[in-house]
Amino acid sequence: MIPASFDYFRPSTIEEAVDVLAGAGEEAKVLAGGHSLLPLLRLRLAYPTALVDVGRVAGLRGVSDRGDHVLIGATTTHDEVVRSPIVREHCPLVALATATVADPAVRHRGTFGGSLAHADPAGDLPAVALALDMVLEVRSPAGERAIPAAGFFLDYLESALAPGEILTGVRVPKLGPGWGFHYEKFHRTAQAWATVGVAAAVRQSNGTVEEVRVGLTNMGSTPVRATAVEEAARGVEAGQNGGLRRAAEQAAEGTDPPADLHAQPDYRMHLARVLTHRALLSASAHRSPAT
């Protein structure tokens, strides 16, 4: 379908973008790669009166090493994230999960910031943002603020971004040595959304699991942190016959997964447990060298 009419603005600086967005009214939306927004417009599920295209705003695109964290610019494309040597070295979980987003043509246009701002619990990156305790930097006429991922995803397609705020970049903390990572995604066709996805990070020492982080994709109206698994996994023996399976049994605890054509809630809960176990095993097997 053809989208409904809207006004279009293409600012070239962040200051200009913030001003234009502030003046464009409450029904204005920010456009980056457009790979979440344009499908909604085409299906006429959204009717913004104006689009503020931040795709060419200087300084929002690219990855930089900031010492204790990596800063990923909001309009950095998925493809650029996957290829970034900084991301691959310091936040491999981001690279692993991003490589599973849709397909190559979509990853050429879709952006890291856009995927988070869209706040789709079926998207792969929100669960990773939760698991890694990312911090989202936003800008508005009132200035800048930083929102921890734990407080960013409020409901289905609803984030903590206030009207007039633009996501400018995302801080990904470096976890340091001894961690292993895996993103386990279950989907029916190559470029489909995850029926359920599990982002896992495992730190172990001498065969013992010391710390675990687990984020779940598509297990509720927001991405979910599987805190029960994280607690149950602490101190267990790593490996196939250790305690990871028992810890993964807690994966569906406190979740309220959706029902759709692909899966009912009880099946999603089953998937969460099975996939969490797989993700934890893979993450502990792919540990980075403890340098």
Partner: peptide
């Protein structure tokens, strides 16, 4: 790119 998902203005 998938040209159904890019605006001409982009």
């Amino acid at each position: 790119v998938k040209s159904c998902s890019v605006l001409a203005v982009q």
